[in-house]
Protein backbone atom coordinates (compact mmCIF):
# COMPACT_ATOMS: atom_id res chain seq x y z
CA UNK A 1 0.00 0.00 0.00
CA UNK A 2 1.13 3.52 -0.80
CA UNK A 3 2.25 5.51 2.22
CA UNK A 4 2.90 9.20 1.79
CA UNK A 5 6.30 9.95 3.30
CA UNK A 6 7.02 13.59 2.66
CA UNK A 7 5.03 16.56 3.84
CA UNK A 8 4.01 17.35 0.28
CA UNK A 9 2.90 13.82 -0.35
CA UNK A 10 0.83 13.92 2.82
CA UNK A 11 -0.82 17.12 1.66
CA UNK A 12 -1.55 15.55 -1.68
CA UNK A 13 -3.05 12.55 0.07
CA UNK A 14 -5.36 14.78 2.10
CA UNK A 15 -6.38 16.69 -1.00
CA UNK A 16 -7.00 13.45 -2.82
CA UNK A 17 -9.34 12.27 -0.10
CA UNK A 18 -11.10 15.64 -0.14
CA UNK A 19 -11.61 15.37 -3.89
CA UNK A 20 -13.18 11.95 -3.63
CA UNK A 21 -15.20 12.97 -0.58
CA UNK A 22 -18.53 13.50 -2.40
CA UNK A 23 -18.42 9.93 -3.61
CA UNK A 24 -17.07 8.51 -0.34
CA UNK A 25 -19.85 10.08 1.71
CA UNK A 26 -22.42 8.90 -0.82
CA UNK A 27 -20.99 5.40 -0.67
CA UNK A 28 -21.23 5.26 3.09
CA UNK A 29 -24.78 6.61 3.11
CA UNK A 30 -26.37 4.96 0.10
CA UNK A 31 -24.36 1.88 -0.75
CA UNK A 32 -22.56 0.24 2.11
CA UNK A 33 -25.62 -0.40 4.27
CA UNK A 34 -27.70 -2.06 1.56
CA UNK A 35 -24.73 -4.13 0.43
CA UNK A 36 -24.06 -5.43 3.92
CA UNK A 37 -27.77 -6.03 4.47
CA UNK A 38 -28.09 -8.13 1.36
CA UNK A 39 -24.92 -10.00 2.24
CA UNK A 40 -26.55 -10.91 5.52
CA UNK A 41 -29.81 -11.80 3.80
CA UNK A 42 -27.98 -14.21 1.50
CA UNK A 43 -27.51 -16.47 4.53
CA UNK A 44 -31.20 -16.38 5.45
CA UNK A 45 -34.49 -17.57 4.04
CA UNK A 46 -36.02 -14.09 4.19
CA UNK A 47 -39.32 -14.07 2.32
CA UNK A 48 -40.24 -10.41 2.48
CA UNK A 49 -42.03 -10.62 5.80
CA UNK A 50 -41.25 -11.36 9.43
CA UNK A 51 -37.72 -11.91 10.72
CA UNK A 52 -35.10 -13.50 8.47
CA UNK A 53 -34.13 -16.99 9.60
CA UNK A 54 -30.41 -17.77 9.50
CA UNK A 55 -29.75 -20.88 7.41
CA UNK A 56 -25.98 -20.59 7.05
CA UNK A 57 -24.65 -21.47 3.62
CA UNK A 58 -27.85 -23.34 2.79
CA UNK A 59 -28.73 -21.00 -0.07
CA UNK A 60 -25.27 -21.27 -1.56
CA UNK A 61 -25.26 -25.06 -1.41
CA UNK A 62 -28.73 -25.25 -2.89
CA UNK A 63 -27.83 -22.88 -5.67
CA UNK A 64 -24.84 -24.90 -6.85
CA UNK A 65 -26.25 -28.37 -6.41
CA UNK A 66 -30.03 -28.27 -6.75
CA UNK A 67 -31.10 -25.25 -8.73
CA UNK A 68 -31.05 -25.83 -12.50
CA UNK A 69 -32.13 -22.21 -13.03
CA UNK A 70 -28.88 -20.95 -11.57
CA UNK A 71 -26.96 -22.85 -14.21
CA UNK A 72 -29.35 -21.56 -16.87
CA UNK A 73 -28.37 -18.06 -15.74
CA UNK A 74 -24.68 -18.85 -15.83
CA UNK A 75 -24.92 -20.32 -19.30
CA UNK A 76 -27.13 -17.64 -20.85
CA UNK A 77 -25.31 -14.71 -19.28
CA UNK A 78 -21.84 -15.91 -20.21
CA UNK A 79 -22.98 -16.67 -23.76
CA UNK A 80 -24.39 -13.19 -24.07
CA UNK A 81 -21.31 -11.47 -22.66
CA UNK A 82 -18.92 -13.43 -24.86
CA UNK A 83 -21.05 -12.84 -27.93
CA UNK A 84 -21.85 -9.20 -27.35
CA UNK A 85 -18.92 -7.50 -25.68
CA UNK A 86 -16.19 -7.92 -28.35
CA UNK A 87 -18.65 -6.98 -31.08
CA UNK A 88 -19.74 -3.87 -29.23
CA UNK A 89 -16.17 -2.74 -28.64
CA UNK A 90 -15.16 -3.17 -32.27
CA UNK A 91 -18.34 -1.94 -33.93
CA UNK A 92 -18.63 0.95 -31.48
CA UNK A 93 -15.12 2.07 -32.37
CA UNK A 94 -15.82 1.69 -36.06
CA UNK A 95 -18.92 3.87 -35.84
CA UNK A 96 -17.11 6.42 -33.67
CA UNK A 97 -14.36 6.69 -36.30
CA UNK A 98 -17.00 7.33 -38.93
CA UNK A 99 -18.65 9.87 -36.64
CA UNK A 100 -15.34 11.65 -36.17
CA UNK A 101 -15.07 12.46 -39.88
CA UNK A 102 -15.46 16.02 -40.99
CA UNK A 103 -18.34 15.55 -43.37
CA UNK A 104 -21.44 17.59 -43.89
CA UNK A 105 -24.32 16.63 -41.65
CA UNK A 106 -22.21 14.65 -39.22
CA UNK A 107 -24.01 16.20 -36.26
CA UNK A 108 -27.28 14.82 -37.55
CA UNK A 109 -25.75 11.39 -38.07
CA UNK A 110 -24.40 11.33 -34.54
CA UNK A 111 -27.86 12.08 -33.19
CA UNK A 112 -29.40 9.34 -35.29
CA UNK A 113 -26.81 6.81 -34.20
CA UNK A 114 -27.15 7.71 -30.56
CA UNK A 115 -30.92 7.89 -30.35
CA UNK A 116 -31.56 4.12 -30.27
CA UNK A 117 -29.40 3.79 -27.16
CA UNK A 118 -31.86 5.86 -25.18
CA UNK A 119 -35.16 4.69 -26.55
CA UNK A 120 -36.70 2.27 -24.10
CA UNK A 121 -39.93 0.81 -22.92
CA UNK A 122 -42.97 -0.74 -24.46
CA UNK A 123 -42.45 1.08 -27.75
CA UNK A 124 -39.16 -0.70 -28.28
CA UNK A 125 -40.54 -4.05 -27.23
CA UNK A 126 -43.25 -3.93 -29.83
CA UNK A 127 -40.76 -2.76 -32.36
CA UNK A 128 -38.54 -5.77 -31.84
CA UNK A 129 -41.48 -8.04 -32.33
CA UNK A 130 -41.82 -6.54 -35.80
CA UNK A 131 -38.14 -6.90 -36.53
CA UNK A 132 -37.71 -10.44 -35.26
CA UNK A 133 -41.05 -11.91 -36.22
CA UNK A 134 -40.50 -15.33 -37.73
CA UNK A 135 -42.78 -15.10 -40.71
CA UNK A 136 -43.46 -11.42 -41.21
CA UNK A 137 -40.48 -9.76 -39.53
CA UNK A 138 -38.24 -7.16 -41.16
CA UNK A 139 -35.20 -9.36 -40.61
CA UNK A 140 -36.84 -12.44 -42.07
CA UNK A 141 -37.81 -10.32 -45.05
CA UNK A 142 -34.27 -9.09 -45.66
CA UNK A 143 -32.69 -12.49 -45.10
CA UNK A 144 -35.35 -14.00 -47.33
CA UNK A 145 -33.90 -12.09 -50.33
CA UNK A 146 -30.72 -14.08 -49.79
CA UNK A 147 -32.57 -17.33 -49.57
CA UNK A 148 -32.19 -17.75 -45.82
CA UNK A 149 -35.10 -19.77 -44.39
CA UNK A 150 -37.34 -18.19 -41.77
CA UNK A 151 -35.90 -18.11 -38.28
CA UNK A 152 -37.92 -17.86 -35.08
CA UNK A 153 -35.59 -15.27 -33.58
CA UNK A 154 -37.43 -14.75 -30.34
CA UNK A 155 -39.20 -18.08 -30.01
CA UNK A 156 -36.53 -20.63 -30.87
CA UNK A 157 -34.40 -21.47 -27.81
CA UNK A 158 -31.40 -22.11 -30.04
CA UNK A 159 -31.28 -18.74 -31.77
CA UNK A 160 -32.85 -16.37 -29.26
CA UNK A 161 -29.40 -15.37 -28.00
CA UNK A 162 -28.48 -13.97 -31.41
CA UNK A 163 -31.57 -11.82 -31.27
CA UNK A 164 -30.50 -10.46 -27.89
CA UNK A 165 -27.02 -9.67 -29.16
CA UNK A 166 -28.51 -7.80 -32.12
CA UNK A 167 -30.89 -5.89 -29.85
CA UNK A 168 -28.03 -4.90 -27.59
CA UNK A 169 -25.96 -3.78 -30.56
CA UNK A 170 -28.79 -1.50 -31.62
CA UNK A 171 -28.10 0.47 -28.45
CA UNK A 172 -24.40 0.81 -29.12
CA UNK A 173 -24.62 4.62 -29.07
CA UNK A 174 -23.37 4.86 -25.50
CA UNK A 175 -20.14 3.03 -26.34
CA UNK A 176 -19.78 5.12 -29.45
CA UNK A 177 -20.15 8.45 -27.72
CA UNK A 178 -17.43 7.60 -25.19
CA UNK A 179 -15.09 6.63 -28.01
CA UNK A 180 -15.98 9.86 -29.72
CA UNK A 181 -15.08 11.97 -26.69
CA UNK A 182 -11.74 10.14 -26.62
CA UNK A 183 -11.12 10.68 -30.32
CA UNK A 184 -11.85 14.38 -29.95
CA UNK A 185 -9.13 14.66 -27.36
CA UNK A 186 -6.33 13.30 -29.57
CA UNK A 187 -4.10 16.23 -30.54
CA UNK A 188 -4.02 16.73 -34.29
CA UNK A 189 -0.29 17.46 -34.09
CA UNK A 190 0.29 13.78 -33.56
CA UNK A 191 -1.45 12.92 -36.80
CA UNK A 192 0.46 15.63 -38.61
CA UNK A 193 3.76 14.37 -37.25
CA UNK A 194 2.88 10.82 -38.25
CA UNK A 195 1.92 11.96 -41.73
CA UNK A 196 5.22 13.78 -42.12
CA UNK A 197 6.94 10.56 -41.12
CA UNK A 198 5.17 8.93 -44.06
CA UNK A 199 2.50 6.98 -42.23
CA UNK A 200 -0.62 6.07 -44.22
CA UNK A 201 -4.05 6.23 -42.65
CA UNK A 202 -3.96 2.63 -41.45
CA UNK A 203 -0.55 3.15 -39.86
CA UNK A 204 -1.76 6.37 -38.25
CA UNK A 205 -4.64 4.45 -36.77
CA UNK A 206 -2.33 1.79 -35.34
CA UNK A 207 0.40 4.10 -34.05
CA UNK A 208 -1.57 7.17 -32.96
CA UNK A 209 -5.30 6.60 -32.61
CA UNK A 210 -5.34 3.18 -31.02
CA UNK A 211 -2.64 3.74 -28.37
CA UNK A 212 -4.10 7.08 -27.33
CA UNK A 213 -7.55 5.58 -27.23
CA UNK A 214 -6.59 2.75 -24.88
CA UNK A 215 -7.86 4.53 -21.75
CA UNK A 216 -11.25 4.86 -23.43
CA UNK A 217 -11.17 1.28 -24.68
CA UNK A 218 -10.38 0.24 -21.13
CA UNK A 219 -13.36 2.24 -19.89
CA UNK A 220 -15.71 0.73 -22.44
CA UNK A 221 -14.38 -2.75 -21.72
CA UNK A 222 -14.86 -2.53 -17.96
CA UNK A 223 -18.23 -0.79 -17.98
CA UNK A 224 -19.39 -2.93 -20.89
CA UNK A 225 -18.43 -6.04 -18.98
CA UNK A 226 -20.25 -4.91 -15.86
CA UNK A 227 -23.35 -3.88 -17.80
CA UNK A 228 -23.48 -6.94 -20.05
CA UNK A 229 -23.49 -9.24 -17.05
CA UNK A 230 -26.59 -7.46 -15.80
CA UNK A 231 -28.63 -7.55 -19.01
CA UNK A 232 -32.24 -7.31 -17.93
CA UNK A 233 -34.70 -5.07 -19.66
CA UNK A 234 -35.03 -6.67 -23.09
CA UNK A 235 -35.33 -10.13 -21.59
CA UNK A 236 -37.89 -8.87 -19.09
CA UNK A 237 -40.07 -7.31 -21.78
CA UNK A 238 -39.55 -9.71 -24.67
CA UNK A 239 -39.15 -13.27 -23.41
CA UNK A 240 -39.56 -13.37 -19.64
CA UNK A 241 -36.47 -15.60 -19.61
CA UNK A 242 -37.82 -18.14 -22.05
CA UNK A 243 -38.31 -20.05 -24.11
CA UNK A 244 -37.21 -22.92 -21.92
CA UNK A 245 -35.04 -20.62 -19.76
CA UNK A 246 -32.76 -19.91 -22.73
CA UNK A 247 -32.61 -16.21 -21.79
CA UNK A 248 -32.90 -16.59 -18.03
CA UNK A 249 -30.07 -14.13 -17.44
CA UNK A 250 -28.79 -13.39 -13.95
CA UNK A 251 -30.54 -10.02 -13.91
CA UNK A 252 -33.87 -11.63 -14.66
CA UNK A 253 -33.32 -14.51 -12.26
CA UNK A 254 -32.58 -12.11 -9.42
CA UNK A 255 -35.54 -9.92 -10.29
CA UNK A 256 -37.98 -12.82 -10.42
CA UNK A 257 -36.67 -14.40 -7.26
CA UNK A 258 -36.73 -11.14 -5.29
CA UNK A 259 -39.55 -9.06 -6.69
CA UNK A 260 -41.95 -11.68 -8.00
CA UNK A 261 -41.38 -14.76 -5.86
CA UNK A 262 -40.47 -12.53 -2.90
CA UNK A 263 -37.62 -14.83 -1.87
CA UNK A 264 -35.25 -12.06 -0.94
CA UNK A 265 -32.79 -14.24 0.90
CA UNK A 266 -32.13 -16.52 -2.02
CA UNK A 267 -32.16 -13.60 -4.48
CA UNK A 268 -29.39 -11.98 -2.43
CA UNK A 269 -27.40 -15.19 -2.70
CA UNK A 270 -27.64 -15.19 -6.49
CA UNK A 271 -26.86 -11.46 -6.57
CA UNK A 272 -23.73 -11.99 -4.52
CA UNK A 273 -22.48 -14.75 -6.76
CA UNK A 274 -23.05 -12.51 -9.75
CA UNK A 275 -21.25 -9.76 -7.88
CA UNK A 276 -18.22 -11.96 -7.17
CA UNK A 277 -18.17 -13.13 -10.77
CA UNK A 278 -18.17 -9.58 -12.16
CA UNK A 279 -15.71 -8.32 -9.57
CA UNK A 280 -13.25 -11.12 -10.33
CA UNK A 281 -13.40 -10.47 -14.06
CA UNK A 282 -13.09 -6.72 -13.55
CA UNK A 283 -10.04 -7.20 -11.35
CA UNK A 284 -8.55 -9.45 -13.99
CA UNK A 285 -9.11 -6.84 -16.71
CA UNK A 286 -7.69 -4.12 -14.48
CA UNK A 287 -4.68 -6.30 -13.78
CA UNK A 288 -3.94 -6.64 -17.47
CA UNK A 289 -4.48 -2.94 -18.09
CA UNK A 290 -0.97 -1.86 -17.19
CA UNK A 291 0.26 -3.90 -20.12
CA UNK A 292 -1.85 -2.22 -22.74
CA UNK A 293 -3.40 1.00 -21.46
CA UNK A 294 -1.41 4.14 -22.12
CA UNK A 295 -1.88 7.23 -19.98
CA UNK A 296 -0.32 10.51 -21.07
CA UNK A 297 -0.54 12.06 -17.63
CA UNK A 298 0.70 9.13 -15.66
CA UNK A 299 2.84 9.73 -12.63
CA UNK A 300 5.74 7.56 -11.75
Amino acid sequence: MYLPKTKMARREAIEGLLFILPWLVGYLIFRLGPLLASFYLSFTNYGGTGTPKWIGVGNYGYMFSEDPRFWDSVRSTLTFVVGFLPLSLVIGLGIALLMNQKVRGILLFRGIYYLPAVTTGVAVALLWQFVFHKQYGVLSGILGWFGVPQIGWLVDPNVVMYAFILMALWGIGGTMIVYLAGLQAIPSELYEAATIDGANSLQRFWTVTLPLLTPVIFFNLVTGLIAAFQIFENAYIMTGGGPNYATYFFGLNIYFTAFRSLRFGYASTIAYILFVLIAALTLFVMGTSRRWVYYAGEKE
Partner: peptide, 16 residues
Protein backbone atom coordinates in the same frame (compact mmCIF):
# COMPACT_ATOMS: atom_id res chain seq x y z
CA UNK B 1 -46.50 -18.65 -13.73
CA UNK B 2 -42.82 -18.18 -14.42
CA UNK B 3 -42.37 -21.92 -14.93
CA UNK B 4 -45.51 -22.05 -17.07
CA UNK B 5 -44.22 -19.31 -19.36
CA UNK B 6 -40.89 -21.02 -19.75
CA UNK B 7 -41.94 -24.65 -20.12
CA UNK B 8 -45.62 -25.07 -20.96
CA UNK B 9 -46.18 -22.03 -23.15
CA UNK B 10 -43.45 -23.03 -25.65
CA UNK B 11 -45.02 -26.48 -25.88
CA UNK B 12 -48.51 -25.09 -26.55
CA UNK B 13 -47.14 -22.53 -29.02
CA UNK B 14 -45.16 -25.11 -30.98
CA UNK B 15 -41.76 -23.63 -30.16
CA UNK B 16 -40.48 -26.93 -28.82
Amino acid sequence: SNAWNNLIAPMLDGVV
